[in-house]
Design a protein around this nucleic acid. Sequence first.
DNA 1: CGAAACGTCATGTTGCCGCAATGTGTCGCA
DNA 2: TGCGACACATTGCGGCAACATGACGTTTCG
Lengths: 224, 224
Amino acid sequence: MRLLVVEDEPEMALALQSALRRHDMIADHADTLAAAMEMIPLGSYDAIILDRGLPDGDGLSLIPRIRQCRASIPVIVLTARGRLAERISGLDSGADDYLAKPFAFEELLARLRAVMRRPDHLRPMAVKLGRLSLDLDHREARVENMRFDLPRRELLVLEALMRRAGRMVPREILMEAVFGMSDEVQSNTLDSHISRLRRKLADADAGVTINGVRGVGYMLMEQI
Amino acid sequence: MRLLVVEDEPEMALALQSALRRHDMIADHADTLAAAMEMIPLGSYDAIILDRGLPDGDGLSLIPRIRQCRASIPVIVLTARGRLAERISGLDSGADDYLAKPFAFEELLARLRAVMRRPDHLRPMAVKLGRLSLDLDHREARVENMRFDLPRRELLVLEALMRRAGRMVPREILMEAVFGMSDEVQSNTLDSHISRLRRKLADADAGVTINGVRGVGYMLMEQI
DNA sequence: CGAAACGTCATGTTGCCGCAATGTGTCGCA
DNA sequence: TGCGACACATTGCGGCAACATGACGTTTCG
């Protein structure tokens, strides 16, 4: 799961990033509208968390521009301006949800989950392949009914692969899903994770295999 | 715009219906879970407004059943049970939004608009010819529903040919599509790829042929 | 402070890709 | 019609880049 947090207050941004990260999501950060507009076409985000009061304008003005380049990214507006009229104008600007500060982080999470379940994203809540199942809401993998715990990065790899189970996932896409664009990784780190994940899947007898296609990427398949 | 209001209190239901009608929407009404379940498959609703405390159970239990028959109807839960934990569990049950009573009708409208604003998800561009199809987004070919893996260069050849299926593709164009204009290839490398590709297409019984025309180029045709 | 996780390096392995050698059909020309 | 030139077809092979995997040092987190 890959998010963009558009927020100018460093503390708030950092708090959000680390909290989201603790829930196994990758959150990039932009502190101005301009920065956000550059990052959105590049990273393929699953959702955007948007503040209103930004140094170079109202966050709401970003929404139409987002819709222009990628129509279906969910946007959650997260702001101190929580009066009724502001909520309404926010939603009418194209936001998918509107949450007023102060807020409970748990509610933000729930609204994120809700917003990403939307049909635009045709995202099933749980995927199953072979003996392996992955609950995308609770970020928890299972083999049959046994818990199958994974470190953060490996879980991100598995998630990206399972979301397109049975289809090729280009290496580039995987890289973006596992590492944000902030961290640039130059070496074969992804290969390491794939390797480790392969071993664990085999040890747990998960009934799935990761096939690599040279020059393209990886694919998760049911074992034969 | 066609809505279903699931709500047991007659006054509230009536108020909603008339208010929605004043905004040019059609709102049907169900006062029990059972009634709602009958109506949903029949009327093709654009959204559902759902109360929780219903005579025959919690409205939330309706959501999974809705998702079963028509996955993509937006559901807004509208209820007096507005505590944080309840909001979270509501959203996690699959609701698209959660609004606590008392509420401003204007906000319900805004949230309805937000939830129904759904840009038609444009399918990844795909080309099909014979039994062969090619997903240009994911750079992935299929014969019927079997994956049809190809090395990078061969896939590039196939892509260039399928984009112009049924038409002649001059050799020069192919060269440029397969090797950039940067790389100069001096020998009959393209012919190699064409040859290998032909064999694979035949082996997979893809229902297409590559015809070569002397002095011009190649053309991809449906097999006779 | 210890353990798990992560990124990097080094080494072994695979298989694509470009090349060239050879085969096959087509066309021009006498 | 016969012959040779040419364009394309096919196949084997070697170089090399991409991938696989295990080891190691650093970082992160409880």
